Simulated scan of single mutants.
Amino acid sequence: MEPVFSPIMMAFGVTLVVGISALAFLKTKRRFGGNVALIGIFAATIALIAAAALFKVERDAQAAGFENWSDRQAAAAAGITDPQAWKQKRAQAETATASEDPERIAAEREQAEAAEAEREKAEAKEAAERRFAPHCLNPQDGSHPEFVSAVKARLRNPDSFEHLETRVLEVDEEGRNIMVMAFWMRDRFGEKKMETALGSFSNKTCGSLAVEFRE
């Protein structure tokens, strides 16, 4: 630990130097210089004793596990004698203080606002896409499974069915989507030809509501 120097001790040192100077050089005031020198020596001795005592107190506080004497006094004022418990409490207080840092709070608020904006953007995109009911269609070929089954059930040769394309209109006010499906089929003569079927389904449940087509 660094030695403790106080302004008072320095003042006493100056007084001692002045007294000795007066004793050495002021022959006409040798008695006055001697008195000043004695006062300076006495005061400097007391200051040194006080500094030594303070040094011991600081060293004892550090040996006990505290940062210094002031840290130990603060722990005692808080009713804590265990240096580890005090260190933990001090760390918690520092963390709490850091958590109140305006710059950190502003940065966290900015991040939260950015995350909220991204979430709203994603939700808006999902809502826009949902109007065309991609959640109701087969992700592989874009067909509506239930509608395909309903159409095939009406064909003379359901095994000849080949899906080409399904187009879906935006959901209406009643929550329905209209769709048009193009597909290949074979007629009664075995000839392959393209046909279309018109239908609708619930945007919410994806259940097919109507089927109209020509063979």
Rank of each mutant, 00 (worst) to 15 (best):
A107K: 02
K87R: 14
A107F: 01
E120N: 14
A78E: 15
A91D: 09
E103T: 03
Q88S: 15
L137G: 00
R90W: 02
E126P: 06
P139Q: 13
K87H: 10
D141W: 06
G142N: 09
R109W: 00
K87W: 03
D82L: 02
A122V: 06
G79P: 01
D101G: 03
E103S: 09
L137K: 01
I80A: 04
A77I: 06
P83Q: 07
Q84V: 11
A76F: 06
A127H: 10
A114I: 10
R131C: 08
N138F: 03
E129L: 13
Q111T: 01
S99L: 05
D82H: 04
A115N: 08
D101Q: 04
P83C: 13
K89L: 15
A127W: 07
I80C: 04
H135V: 13
E94G: 11
A112D: 06
E108K: 03
D141A: 05
P83H: 06
A128C: 10
E118Y: 03
E120M: 14
T97S: 11
K125M: 12
A91L: 14
G79W: 01
A77V: 07
E108R: 02
A78G: 12
E103P: 00
D82A: 05
A115V: 11
W86C: 01
K121H: 12
K89R: 14
E113I: 03
W86V: 01
A93M: 09
A78Y: 09
A78P: 10
A124W: 08
I80E: 07
G142L: 07
K89Y: 10
Q84P: 04
K87Q: 14
A85T: 08
F132K: 00
R90S: 06
E113V: 09
P102H: 02
